[in-house]
């Protein structure tokens, strides 16, 4: 079972939820924690892993052979990211803009372009108690995280439970984190911003065909806009975490919710069982169709 934890809005508590679930479930099964928020990984603050190996991740940027290039400009024309320029007697590349798609190489009529590896980040693997812990770290100055997110996603344990901590938002890095997971838990807060971005995230996971449920963090009495939205959309509210100074203080010390309170530890186990139920339900529906 692979569960992704995502949110439209940033700062809603993805990492709090993802690390708590990982800590709670390690007693039941083999758990792998994947920190896919490669621009700002922070799962390690709560899980304190020891890293045992590091792998460099590369994309392939174009290298021009000036002997073969006839300056036709096809490469610059097809590049959607403006990473190539035909200037006078040479083709200039801007590797910082290259997405590594290989389009220029494919379309070059004279075969003047070869792939050149460019490091965009590292994948670090380690252990945190009984948890397998993997995180990606994007190089400073690298603009493209999806290939690195993919490299982190490859690290799933044999069977067991994989928890994917996604970046915030609904753009490419998030899609690469959520796509192909069995379930996406969307963490939000009962504010207009939380609702707006939750709606965007729901549209995203639906277009990916990933079943989802909602977790309301910093829930307050009488702040019901998320529940109302979920009723309208037919989405299950899986859990609510109240707005609490105690929880915020524990968070600020790097103590995850599941570690801080036995009751929450059990609640996250129960959450996992409910997710399992929803996923099984979804699958049997799919089979019937």
């Amino acid at each position: 079972m692979i569960i992704s934890v995502a949110s439209g809005k940033g700062g809603t508590g993805k990492t709090t939820v993802a690390t708590s679930m990982a800590l709670a479930l390690q007693a039941c099964d083999h758990v792998t924690f994947l920190d896919c928020d490669v621009e700002e990984p922070n799962g390690h603050i709560f899980l304190n892993p020891e890293f045992t190996e590091t792998e460099n991740i590369y994309i392939e940027v174009p290298k021009i052979d000036p002997g073969k290039c006839n300056l036709c400009g096809r490469c610059a024309e097809v590049c959607a990211f403006n990473a190539l320029l035909v200037a006078g007697e040479a083709v200039i590349t801007f590797p910082e803009l290259c997405h590594g798609c290989g389009g220029c190489r494919y379309f070059c009529p004279v075969g003047a372009i070869s792939p050149e590896p460019k490091q965009i980040g590292t994948v670090e693997r380690g252990v945190a108690g009984r948890l397998a812990f993997v995180r990606g770290r994007l190089e400073v100055g690298a603009a493209l995280s999806p290939p690195l997110v993919d490299a982190v996603r490859k690290n799933r344990g044999p069977g067991g439970i994989t928890i994917v901590d996604a970046p915030p938002g609904t753009s490419c890095p998030v899609i690469h984190s959520v796509r192909g997971t069995d379930f996406c838990l969307l963490v939000t807060e009962p504010t207009p911003f939380g609702l707006n971005d939750l709606d965007l995230a729901v549209q995203m996971v639906r277009s990916l065909g990933v079943p989802c449920g909602v977790l309301i963090n910093r829930a307050r009495e009488g702040w019901g806009i998320i529940e109302k939205y979920c009723r309208q959309e037919g989405i299950t509210v899986m859990m609510k975490i109240p707005l609490s100074q105690e929880i915020a203080e524990a968070y600020s010390r790097g103590v995850s919710l599941a570690k801080f309170d036995r009751g929450w530890n059990d609640a996250f186990k129960q959450l996992y069982r409910e997710i399992g139920g929803l996923v099984a339900n979804e699958r049997s529906h799919c089979n019937q169709r």
Binding site: A83, A87, L97
Partner: peptide
């Protein structure tokens, strides 16, 4: 080139060179 998501200055330069 002005409509490019990224690298607008490079695309614009290419158009001027063309």
């Amino acid at each position: 080139g002005a409509a490019s998501a990224e690298g607008a200055g490079i695309r614009t330069t290419q158009i001027l060179l063309d």
